[in-house]
Design a binder for these strands. Structure first.
Lengths: 173, 173
DNA sequence: CTAAATCTCTTAGTGACTAAGATATATATC
DNA sequence: GATATATATCTTAGTCACTAAGAGATTTAG
């Protein structure tokens, strides 16, 4: 019994700690956007472009969950800031590929240096085996949160009379 | 050397996994706000109220980094939704305390159930000792990110000519 | 008692977003 | 090959949460 209680307390602490560090991570991202002088969504798109390389406007809309109209605005701003370029696909001229301008984008990359250094320092204190445990946890955690998100979204498709009587708005993705 | 390389690769994977799960966590929060039919900041304030209990409008502005004007809007919306109540401080009648209406707020709490279940399931696969490691990591990680955020913000106070030539906007916190 | 400080709210203006539809191009059908 | 349908992006009009600045209202200091 005492064993179980200790574990319960540990789990609560863990949840709290995870929440806090996650919230702080969000704040870091917002600060990066602020310092770079771009909107939050703009930074998110830069991130996607960095991960996926050359990507169409429609794909950005898909991944971010924004409308194509909003993406037009995002790309306009990023282009004006010299961070990305629009390139029409020569095979399918309806498509517009967005690609980063590496020299400019690198300046944004610089803003992640403090974070990387902090993380290096933290990771430095762990053995390789411990790091593997952390990796396993991060991977499983991601899957768990993804599943939870889907579960939550599916509430929206449940007819309202079968749900709690919260006032609900349409979800936009 | 091969040892070092393996570790480097592990670290990269870890960073990537952390980033992904963190991004998914943000998405979960946005989904909660969407399902509840309130704005993101409104949910953040509910969160603070839940953690800190009865809190003044000014304190909400402080913690969220929003202006007091924005908080007036947040509280207006939350009050209209029946989630919080405004109460004037009888000792200092300039102050307005905000407190949650438990019955209504509980409905929002329900929206975190899928997440909690997912997390329980993930945590279930770990021994108590492993959980302690995760807690240590989460705690240290939080501190690291916090420090990194401060370091990044301090760039803003550095005179522009000593910084990279990024176009910068004023930060708002 | 008056001046300054503190706390919230109001006002005017801005920027990112959505929904709906316009435009341009590509694909399928007869 | 012409016409209809589908696809990809952009445009337009309107909305909503936000900021900056300052207007009450009340408290604290001199």
């Amino acid at each position: 019994m005492s064993r179980t209680k200790a574990r319960t307390a540990l789990l609560r602490e863990l949840e709290e700690a995870m929440r806090r560090s996650s919230a702080q991570g969000v704040l870091y991202g917002q600060t990066v956007a602020n310092v770079a002088g771009i909107a939050n969504s703009d930074l998110e798109c830069m991130d996607i472009l960095y991960l996926e390389g050359r990507v169409t406007a429609g794909r950005l809309a898909e991944v971010t969950g924004l409308t194509t109209g909003a993406i037009t605005g995002v790309v306009d701003r990023l282009e004006k800031a010299g961070l990305v370029r629009r390139e029409r696909d020569e095979n399918d001229r309806r498509k517009v590929f967005i690609s980063v301008v590496p020299e400019q984008a690198m300046k944004i990359g610089q803003l992640y240096v403090p974070m990387q250094q902090a993380m290096e320092k933290v990771f430095g204190a762990y053995s390789e085996e411990e790091l593997r445990l952390l990796l396993r946890f991060a991977t499983e955690g991601y899957k768990g949160v993804l599943a939870a998100t889907e579960a939550l979204k599916s509430l929206l498709d449940t007819p309202p009379e079968k749900r709690s009587d919260l006032k609900l708005k349409k979800l936009r993705r």
